[in-house]
Design a protein around this nucleic acid. Structure first.
Lengths: 348, 348
DNA sequence: GTTAGCACTCTCAGTGATAGAGTGCTAACA
DNA sequence: TGTTAGCACTCTATCACTGAGAGTGCTAAC
């Protein structure tokens, strides 16, 4: 018993129908709606085979069939055809990026909102991991005698600020000198390269000044670490309630809860499914998900770039019955487009 | 027909029971569970009167009664008794504030999360309106020849940064001078006071420099306006699904949708209900809400202070059947506590 | 290998029938 | 005059039952 051409066609038809209707698909439906040139009885036999091979499931005796995770896997790898998508909506990304170029968080939030609006699925975006980004500028601004703000500007104009406290009073001229010195020593280094030993080294070289500024330098070391903390932005959780598979309030609540937990979101975005599609897009289906709350869901993920380097991940989440083809199309177009605009802005 | 002592007691009992069970309350339930010393028949007569007066409603003939908006209004104003609340959970606020003192947004998000966790209701917090806050420090940091970052520090150490662009190349020494000048002129003024005419005036006084820095000064004027943009943080929308009154997926979706719209959230927080309780807490019940999506909900709001001035609003949202007493207690304790901690931190 | 036909299975929607909760009214009582 | 017991009435929710419909698997014929 093998997967001949016709069985594949039948599987494809069943999946297409199920994606639309969310109802188990029967042999007669296939023979009527999809012109396969064979009778429903033949389709029935093939469906029985496909079930035995694990590509289909039957919710109860004498119901139609629904695709299994394995069925979807075959579908996304061999069968699905990418539809044309409406680029007009996607082009709004340009506006978002231009408008929010100096507010990375807000930009990512808006992109994830747009994406969930276009796809009607919940969308996740992780903030740029910038430990491989170079330091562009550092500046200390005095607040009062004992506290100051450390401004950190990274390549790609990612700006962070931290409030630092010192146990000793510090003159503003000292801060200016320290700023200059920090820039001389650290500019052009990546966050990975700016570590504790380097800061300790700096302290020693400064001699008496280093001791006076002990607190400040420690605080700076701390701040640099926290610059790289990862955030995840999620939008469109509400769409969960649109899927018939989550009309059970208990199920919906479970998933909602998961989507409010940052750790789970990070797990979802960072897991690697066995195979990766050529266009840099990964699909994780149902039980393949690590997070237990996601076992009935699928995720389509891809990475986005800044300065030529992959810095973050975008994921679109849905029931296993999600419209993979359209989501993959939308996502890959979006990322190409984003890459294009961001490159113009950041490096130019 | 007036509201004598017994009628009030019966209303109180009905509301208490309904808050617990979410089921229409019958006369026998009241006479059995609450010891009013009269028979169910008497209660029945009084309930009929209370319905005629508009404090109760009957979902259908020969069902029990449920409170009307007017009934709840009477309850929150005269009848409810504040319970003791668990201060231990509230004390986590201190940790949040200490940890996030230099990241206002993150702090407010965490507080709203905590509050929704404690109360099991969705929670809103508006970001500080800082147009009445004084400017503490301004600094321009060069990024490259044509662009720079404007750092704005307000009283209470609220920090904002904006990326500005100029059409002409600008030397970094010029920026330092400009920073000094801006500080001399603007420090200590509130955002309200720093308006376009003032900036124009500045340009003129600077003569040839003013023309060169035309772009920059315009950009600064723009930025100052946008510093005051209001944000609202919302947490715990998921709790909606816990309320039996939103077990209807369509209703739940409607409310969810509303909670994702910033404009609606601002409306919810800024509306004024007719009466304000003495402890600075406002309650808006059902139809009293302006936003149409909220007509089946109630909101308990209060304001929080920074530097002795009211700068933002916190709101807790629930079905009209919400546990007003506990929510009011929790909220008023939280705000007192926050005020205490924030005062120590910001002004000290 | 394919197909028509048929018996069988299971769900779903509709239909009474029934129990139960609650009311309103009346008449009796303190 | 206010309170109460009793009773008829109303409305809902639940359960069992039924028939229609969708779909399957098997068999026998092509």
């Amino acid at each position: 018993m093998d997967l001949d051409e016709r069985k594949l066609k039948i599987l494809h038809a069943i999946i297409c129908d199920y994606l639309e209707t969310a109802e188990p698909v029967g042999s007669r439906t296939i023979s009527k709606k999809y012109n396969l040139g064979v009778s429903s009885a033949t389709i029935r036999n093939d469906m029985s085979d496909l079930e035995e091979l694990g590509f289909l499931m039957q919710p109860y005796t004498s119901a139609g069939r629904i695709p299994s995770d394995k069925g979807y896997r075959l579908y996304v790898e061999q069968l699905m055809e990418y539809p044309m998508i409406d680029m007009q909506q996607l082009e709004l990304v340009q506006e978002i990026i231009v408008e929010k170029i100096d507010k990375m968080e807000s930009m990512l939030q808006d992109i994830s909102k747009l994406l969930s609006m276009i796809t009607n699925y919940p969308t996740l975006i992780s903030s740029p991991q910038i430990h491989k980004t170079k330091l562009k500028h550092m500046q200390l601004i005095p607040l009062d005698e004992y506290s100051m703000i450390l401004i950190t500007v990274m390549d790609g104009n990612i700006v962070r600020n931290h409030i630092l406290n010192s146990t000793m009073p510090i003159k503003s001229e000292t801060l200016i000198k320290l700023s200059t010195m920090l820039n001389q020593r650290l500019q052009g280094l990546t966050l990975e390269e700016i570590n504790l030993p380097l800061i300790q080294n700096l302290k020693q070289q400064m001699g008496i000044h280093g001791i006076l500024l002990n607190d400040v330098l420690d605080a700076i070391a701390n701040s640099i670490e926290s610059v790289d903390e990862q955030d995840v932005y999620m939008s469109g959780a509400i769409h969960i309630l649109d899927f018939p598979e989550f009309h059970d309030v208990f199920k919906a609540k479970n998933l909602f809860h998961a989507l409010e937990e940052k750790d789970i979101l990070i797990t979802i975005l960072s897991q690697n499914s066995s195979k990766q599609k050529d266009n840099n897009i990964q699909i994780t289906i149902g039980q393949e998900n690590i997070a237990k709350e996601m076992k009935d869901c699928s995720v389509v993920t891809t990475s986005y770039k800044m300065g030529g380097q992959k810095v973050g991940t975008i994921g679109i989440l849905g029931p296993t019955r999600m419209d993979y083809a359209r989501v993959v199309s939308t996502l890959s177009h979006l990322v190409k487009y984003m890459d294009h605009i961001l490159r113009n802005f950041m490096d130019g």
